[in-house]
């Protein structure tokens, strides 16, 4: 427990808030890697997920990429990228993009594909076609799952960005953990771990809030009600 306290004290030590290795800089680097990877990853995964979900074409591909993404170890992707591309920030970010894609792709596809057939038929009957059907019916209804994918990717990317403190010799909060391990400076390790964990949890909580703000209250309530109804019939 003592070392845990020392780790917390390390975080609050003013010396660690300025100069090289300052906490604000490391946090900024970590967030920067994660945001770039997530934005680029989403720009690739979401359109493909929407298209495969909307058309129903290549659906197995979307699912298989998701499963393969879970089977391939994150560490391996980062390591291969670093050895092939060289040190620095580029291999790390490329590897993080590769990690961010599968959960977002699979969830977006599942969300759009899972839109109630009656609802889709109804919209088509009202004269909705193609792009309008996707934008005004399918995307809003798929939003909860699209957010789930984004949250899973975010937590994973923030977690894995830690490895970049070692592989790629890049910055980020992982530096505290790896520098601490090699210098036998346990408070530094613990401080780094606390900061990464906090960042991961905060990002997840923040996205959960955003999700609540973006998804219409009525739809969220209807989903919760449907959930409650199925639970009630089961119980």
């Amino acid at each position: 427990m003592e070392v845990f306290v020392e780790g917390v004290l390390w975080i609050f030590d003013p010396d660690n808030w300025s100069g090289i290795n300052a906490i604000p800089d490391r946090v900024r680097e970590h967030v920067f890697y994660a945001v770039v990877a997530l934005v680029v990853g989403a720009a690739i995964a979401v359109p493909i997920g929407l298209w495969t979900g909307h058309t129903g074409r290549l659906g197995n591909l979307a699912i298989n990429i998701g499963n393969l993404g879970r089977a391939i170890p994150d560490l391996g992707i980062v390591a291969i990228a670093a050895v092939l591309i060289g040190f620095g920030i580029l291999p790390v970010i490329l590897a993080l993009i590769a990690l961010a894609i599968p959960p977002m792709l699979t969830n977006t596809y599942t969300g759009v594909r899972g839109v109630d057939a009656d609802v889709r038929d109804c919209a088509v009957g009202l004269g909705f076609t193609g792009w309008r059907l996707l934008r005004q019916v399918e995307i809003p209804l798929a939003l909860p799952l699209i957010f789930t994918g984004l949250r899973v990717s975010t937590v994973q990317v923030i977690a894995t960005a830690t490895i970049s403190g070692f592989i790629g010799r890049a910055g980020g909060l992982g530096r505290y953990i790896f520098d601490g391990l090699s210098m036998f400076d346990t408070p530094r390790v613990v401080a780094g771990a606390i900061l990464v964990a906090l960042l991961g949890v905060l990002a997840d909580v923040g996205l959960a809030r955003l999700q609540r703000a973006v998804i219409p209250k009525g739809y969220a309530a209807a989903l919760a009600e449907r959930e409650a109804a199925t639970t009630a019939t089961r119980a």
């Binding site: 977690a159 490895i163 949890v201």
Partner: peptide
């Protein structure tokens, strides 16, 4: 369990070292 899952694995191992 969701919050615990959000803790990066490397950080988790590091936190358990003490």
């Amino acid at each position: 369990t969701g919050v615990l899952f959000a803790v990066p694995s490397l950080a988790f191992f590091a936190l358990l070292i003490p």
